[in-house]
């Protein structure tokens, strides 16, 4: 099967060997992954809390979203570099791990939502109900990503 041989190849790639080499490689890359999601999910959550009307009410959601966007992207970049690096270290078992699969579904939905509806609602000053729904759903999706990620090690 193509996918299986791809993941096997991935786990023997030079970057996988680097990840599986020194003892400190994995925890350090994982720490960078955490720092990345604090940047991205942390800044998205601030916008979400504003959409829900719970935080930062002196600013509009549009202003917050625009001002925090560069830092959200810094976080995305860090996550999307460190995540695949960790994945390649043990590609076959991650690929088969139900928590990992759950996380990837949540991540795809969360990213898709972030760059479409969430962005539109945050920037256009949509009706309070739409804003609350978008903020709430975004928080739920990103919570799924983090929770799924945490569970990978326990499944």
């Amino acid at each position: 099967m193509f996918a299986a041989s791809f993941f096997e190849w991935l786990s023997t790639s030079p970057w996988a060997n680097a990840m599986n080499g020194p003892e400190w490689a994995f925890p350090v890359v994982q720490s960078l992954h955490f720092i990345g999601f604090a940047f991205s999910i942390g800044t998205i959550a601030i916008v979400d809390l504003r959409l829900l009307g719970w935080a930062m009410r002196r600013q509009s959601a549009a202003e917050l979203a625009a001002d925090l966007d560069p830092w959200t992207r810094v976080g995305f970049a860090l996550m999307l570099i460190t995540g695949p690096l960790m994945f390649s270290a043990d590609a076959v078992s991650y690929h088969n791990n139900p928590s990992f699969q759950f996380k990837m579904v949540c991540l795809l939905l969360a990213l898709l939502f972030h760059f479409t509806i969430h962005r539109k609602v945050a920037r256009s000053g949509a009706s309070p109900l739409a804003a609350k729904l978008a903020g709430g759903l975004s928080l739920v999706l990103w919570t799924g990503v983090v929770a799924g990620g945490r569970m990978i090690a326990f499944v």
Binding site: A38, F39, W142, T143, R150
Partner: peptide, 18 residues
Amino acid sequence: IGGIHLLGIALFGGMVLV
């Protein structure tokens, strides 16, 4: 509990960063 700890880091950590 580990998941809650991690979510707290994302939310609270993001606010410290900002």
